[in-house]
Write a protein that binds this DNA or RNA. Structure first.
Length: 576
RNA sequence: CGGGAUGUAGCUCAGCCUGGUAGAGCACUACGUUCGGGACGUAGGAGUCGGAGGUUCAAAUCCUCUCAUCCCGACCA
């Protein structure tokens, strides 16, 4: 491709709307252009990388025996009513009416459509197992789209759905997909971890996410440093009950005035104690009205997923309204404590191991100190409702947990029979009896992968594409070709030879100054760069530089093609 | 949805407080000089100042409404 014939519009200034580095670089390098909030056009350059991601996914899905289909983006409401998600799904589901006033949705996912297809097409256990996949546009009307294509509303997704006659077969299909995912993300050159995950609104049982590790990631993940290799989404990671017994009560119970100490931080500053000696009490809505109290150690955070699974707690989790708190305790938030509460109370394990602790007195500007379980108040039910913190023991049994940030690029689920039951998708077994199929579901955020790759691979000058995802393999940079016929001729010759060898080459034939060409080539992140100049030709060498290298290499002109092919092959194998 | 902020040329922004002929840099076009790390000069094209209404002799500027975009938002007991 000739640069002069290819619309690559780079910009020096960072567009003000971009917050994270991948979004900034994608705009500056001209990979995407925003059309509306969370909705982007992919330019020719950006699309080349997006297609590379797609190709790797397609190859690995095919290798794993999955069959590609293409389902409609617009789906009739009837299917969603049948599965029950017409009511369940919130405003994130974009609904619309056609000219006959019939309800439709723009698909945020395709369980309903695929299950409908499966129940029509699959009649016999002999046709199972089978796995259908597609790479297709989805629309989710996110509350707050941000970070460019990282959390867009419209995005490209690979979704796959497998159908099985038994749980064992589902497990096998799931394992095959897990392997395929490991291969894909490795081929893309990404640093990632599979982590245990919550199944969320999709439902089902076993589930893992594939997280690309990056500080700007929206998800927190708990990773063990031990031999157990444990990794889980923070939402899901269990906090093990402490093994140390509770210390003996030493201090007497005393009520103290704590004016203006509404937060743990204020309380600790006022009292001169660490947050680990305090208790906090959170009020959440109960499932049948009323409120439920949850007690945590002062420095711990509530885990919403764990909390909403407690008996009597409303799903989804909602913090209790101020009025409800006052009605239940006679006190407003800021001074709540577990002593003398009438509502149901749960306490986190860590909160229950405290002795001589400080907690609210359920009176304005008053706290208790020297509080002890059993002696001063009954022990509530012990539960795990907090987020794990760095240093907690790994649930895997070896090592301690650390917290890292990740970008979720893939998610695999064993759905079981949730949709097949609701939509009556069954096949006949050996005995001629209908059996409801087991389903698995496997997603990949294709668009997001491009952003994640940049988030993980960039420097001050621009993008450092993992080679398998780069829009071009090589950029040829002739200097002063307008004045030097031999530079021009050599650049053309190299271009033709490389193209003939199947290399994706970008020839910078613009009449621009060298600095402009170098800066652009680095910004758009082409892995291999070859500079053609009079100076080089005189010395019998051309200048080669890898995008990740700090220095140039001088390559004899006669060897340039072969050496470049070698480097490219090495890079594609992931040896960059 | 609640709170905050911002809408002026393709991009980054100034001008608004204190009303009076719409600006700069980047980008773009032409010409000339320049040519190994985002050159310089000259000339030029480009904006219904988000939209509607109002106040005023006069509105980018003041007022009201509206739309869009961005940021923050259980974690507090």
């Amino acid at each position: 491709m000739r640069w002069s014939r290819y619309p690559i519009n780079t910009v020096k200034e960072t567009p003000s709307e971009a917050e994270v580095i991948s979004h900034q670089l994608m705009l500056r390098a001209g990979l995407i252009r925003r059309l509306a909030a969370g909705i982007y056009t992919w330019t020719p350059l950006g699309l080349r990388s997006l297609r590379k991601v797609e190709t790797i996914i397609r190859e690995e899905m095919d290798r794993a025996g999955a069959l590609e289909v293409l389902m409609p983006a617009v789906q009739p409401a009837e299917l969603w009513q049948e599965s029950g998600r017409w009511e369940q799904y919130g405003p994130e589901l974009l609904r619309l009416k056609d000219r006959h006033q019939r309800d439709f949705v723009i698909g945020p996912t395709h369980e309903e459509v695929i299950t409908d297809l499966a129940r029509r097409e699959l009649k016999s256990y002999r046709q199972l197992p089978v796995n259908f996949y597609q790479i297709q546009v989805k629309f989710r009307d996110e509350i707050r789209p941000r970070f460019g294509v990282m959390r867009g509303r419209e995005f490209l997704m690979k979704d796959a759905y497998s159908f099985h006659a038994s749980q064992e077969s589902l497990q096998q299909g799931y394992d095959i997909m897990r392997e395929a995912y490991m291969r894909m993300f490795k081929r893309m050159g990404l640093e990632f971890r599979p982590v245990k995950a919550d199944t969320g609104s999709i439902g089902g049982t076993a589930s893992e996410e594939f997280q690309v590790l990056a500080d700007s990631g929206e998800d927190a993940i708990a990773v063990s440093d031990g031999a157990d290799q444990y990794a889980a989404n923070l939402e899901l990671a269990p906090a093990l009950p402490p093994s140390t017994p509770r210390a003996a009560a030493l201090e007497p119970l005393a009520k103290i005035a704590t004016p203006g100490c509404r937060t743990i931080e204020q309380l600790c500053t006022f009292m001169g104690v660490p947050a680990t000696k305090t208790l906090k009490l959170l009020m959440v809505d109960g499932s049948e009205g009323g409120v439920v109290a949850i007690v945590l150690r002062g420095d711990h955070e509530l885990n919403a997923i764990k909390a909403q699974k407690l008996p009597g707690v409303a799903t989804p989790l909602r913090m209790a309204a101020r009025e409800a708190v006052v009605a239940a305790t006679g006190c407003e938030p800021g001074y709540l404590g577990p002593i003398g509460l009438r509502c149901p109370v749960f306490a986190d394990h860590a909160a229950l191991t405290l002795a001589d602790f400080i907690c609210g007195a359920n009176e304005l500007d008053q706290h208790y100190r020297g509080v002890n379980w059993q002696r001063d108040l009954p022990e509530p039910t012990a539960v795990d409702v907090r987020n794990v913190v760095p240093g907690d023991p790994s649930p895997g049994g070896a090592g301690r947990l650390g917290i890292r940030r990740g970008i979720e690029v893939g998610h695999i689920f064993q759905l079981g029979r949730k949709y097949s039951e609701a939509m009556q998708a069954s096949v006949l077994d050996e005995a001629g009896k209908p059996v409801t199929m087991y389903m698995g579901c496997y997603g990949i955020g294709v668009t997001r992968i491009v952003a994640a790759a940049i988030e993980q691979n960039h420097d001050a000058a621009g993008i450092l594409w993992p080679e398998p995802l780069a829009p071009f393999d090589v950029v040829l940079v002739p200097l002063n070709a307008g004045k030097s016929p031999r530079v021009q001729a050599m650049a053309e010759s190299l271009y033709e030879q490389l193209v003939a060898r199947g290399v994706e080459v970008l020839l910078d034939d613009r009449d621009a100054r060298p600095g402009v060409k170098f800066a652009d080539a680095e910004l758009i992140g082409i892995p291999h760069r070859l500079v053609i100049s009079d100076r080089g030709i005189d010395s019998g060498n051309l200048e080669y530089r890898h995008r990740r290298a700090a220095d140039n290499e001088a390559w004899p002109i006669a060897e340039v093609i072969e050496r470049l092919l070698e480097r490219r092959a090495a890079g594609q194998r992931g040896a960059s």
